[in-house]
């Protein structure tokens, strides 16, 4: 389990707070640019950041998720690495079909965790 080995069911108020934050932050990011379109379009800083950010932010999340899965007491590094390699190989070799890559990687991990000791 990723990061949830010791936690229980989240409280209703907490879930609502998370939803409210997601809504407000995401809506602001989507709506605000329509109001200040011209300024954003001219800003080299914003343009370059938008070009550089996705690979890094997504990569950072992938590494952090890998680390938190690896840190949980029941995980075994080799099983995790095999599933990661299957995911990467499927994605690069089978034409970047996201659902197929996730499906094959997850299936590999589920089989290794449940049926291989």
């Amino acid at each position: 389990m990723i990061m949830l080995a010791t936690s229980g069911i989240p409280a209703t108020g907490y879930i609502i707070a998370v939803l409210a934050i997601m809504f407000v932050v995401t809506f602001t990011l989507r709506a605000l640019p329509f109001a200040i379109l011209a300024k954003l379009r001219e800003s080299t800083f914003v343009n370059v950041m938008a070009l550089w950010m996705p690979a890094g932010i997504l990569g950072l999340l992938a590494i952090a998720l890998f680390y938190s899965t690896y840190s949980s007491p029941e995980s075994e590094l080799w099983k995790l690495l095999v599933a990661v390699v299957v995911t990467v190989a499927s994605h690069l070799l089978l034409g970047r079909r996201t659902l197929a890559s996730i499906g094959l990687g997850t299936l590999t991990y589920v089989v290794l965790v449940n049926f291989v000791s």
Binding site: L58, T69, A83, V88, I102, T106, Y109, V110, N114
Partner: peptide, 21 residues
């Protein structure tokens, strides 16, 4: 619960990273 199913989240972000790079 199916043990190991949450690997899907890590797999999703691996594919998103590969698509970004």
């Amino acid at each position: 619960t199916i043990a190991g199913l949450d690997f899907a989240l890590l797999a999703l972000f691996i594919t998103l990273t590969l698509d970004a790079v």
